[in-house]
Simulated assay, not measured.
Amino acid sequence: MRLERARRKSGIRKVLHFTLQNPTTQLSNWNANFRHLTNDAAPLRMLWHFVEWNFGFASRNPAMKLPRETNDKYVVEAVLKALDVLESFRDSEELQLSEISKRVSLNKSRAFRLLHTLCERGYVERGTDGHRYRLGIKLFEHASSLRRDVKQVAQPYMRKLQLRFNETVNLAVLHGGEVLYIDLLESSRPFRMSAMVGSRMPIANTSLGKALITHAAEHDLEAVFDTLTPTELRKLRAEMEIVKRRGYATDQEENEPGVACIGAPIVSEAGVSVGALSISGPSSRILKQEREIGATLAATCKEISRQMGFAERGMPQAMPNRNAVVRRAGN
């Protein structure tokens, strides 16, 4: 009896040891080696069936297989998926687990684990009903730290603009082919816009985007131009010429119904845009003061640019290449 018990324990240890050491080995490769151990012992037969079912389940279910999405051996797939989850949210919307799972093409179990981890670190928060998720405050804290140099220089001027016109003042940068809001001062009036710190907006139909792209670096220009149709590209190039001529861009309800916006670029020492300021509000109020707001905003951004090191001493050396990109885009 003791010999039989010892044999069973030894068999169990062998099965478990092999299972832990070779978790991805096909069952067919070690089937014959261990099945003879289970022929005369009920506990070992139960253990065998448990191992066989668990290791065979993934091979019988293609959905469980997770092929790599990139051939780059230095890319961590789990981090990519976590970023996919974050990018599935659009501004301040709240999403259910099923919606997130569908958007990022993950099963609910894996999507839930990623969401739980992001919630633990503050990058995602649960909604009040406990079933929905939204972007967490940690993301907005990081967004507010982006381009801190531009933000620090611009903030006193933003306060002056807000006091003078009592309209919403926005500060944004070009990031990932979009307009990224990094600071704003709201009007004391009840009218509110949809933008907030961390929001992303398209370039072609926002005054901030038009102001930023007019003096953007060569690689940013090419990246944006490649995403536009010929009609959209011609329209954007025309807007860019207007910004160069008068110093500011306009958005007349192109991005948000009932809202107009006037924006001007902030450029670096090299003459490349590092940010843009805009004043936005109801179309009826903004368009009535377009010239005054535009002139004030353009002068303010020039002063900020001077503090950022820019001096109008002619075209910097990097600019001819940039102009060539614009010309090629028009052909």
Rank of each mutant, 00 (worst) to 15 (best):
R328I: 08
S98I: 14
G56V: 12
R134Q: 10
G136K: 00
I286F: 13
T25L: 15
L3S: 08
P67F: 14
F310W: 06
G209P: 07
S273Y: 13
E4K: 10
M308S: 06
E52P: 00
K138A: 14
S92D: 11
R2V: 06
S305W: 01
G247D: 03
N31V: 06
S59D: 14
F112T: 01
R148W: 10
T250R: 04
S207C: 02
N22I: 07
L277C: 05
H36S: 05
G176N: 09
Q252K: 15
E141I: 00
R237H: 12
L236M: 09
R110C: 00
A6V: 12
A216D: 03
H36V: 07
R164E: 07
C119A: 09
G177E: 07
Q317C: 13
E303V: 08
A216P: 01
E290G: 10
N205K: 15
K81Q: 11
I266G: 04
L161V: 03
L118H: 04
T231M: 14
L228R: 07
L277W: 10
A58N: 13
L118A: 03
R322L: 07
H17M: 15
R126M: 08
G314F: 05
L80P: 02
I286K: 10
R306Q: 13
A299D: 15
D220R: 05
R2L: 09
L228T: 07
S59L: 09
I12D: 01
Y123H: 13
E222R: 05
L297S: 03
D251L: 03
Q317H: 11
M196N: 11
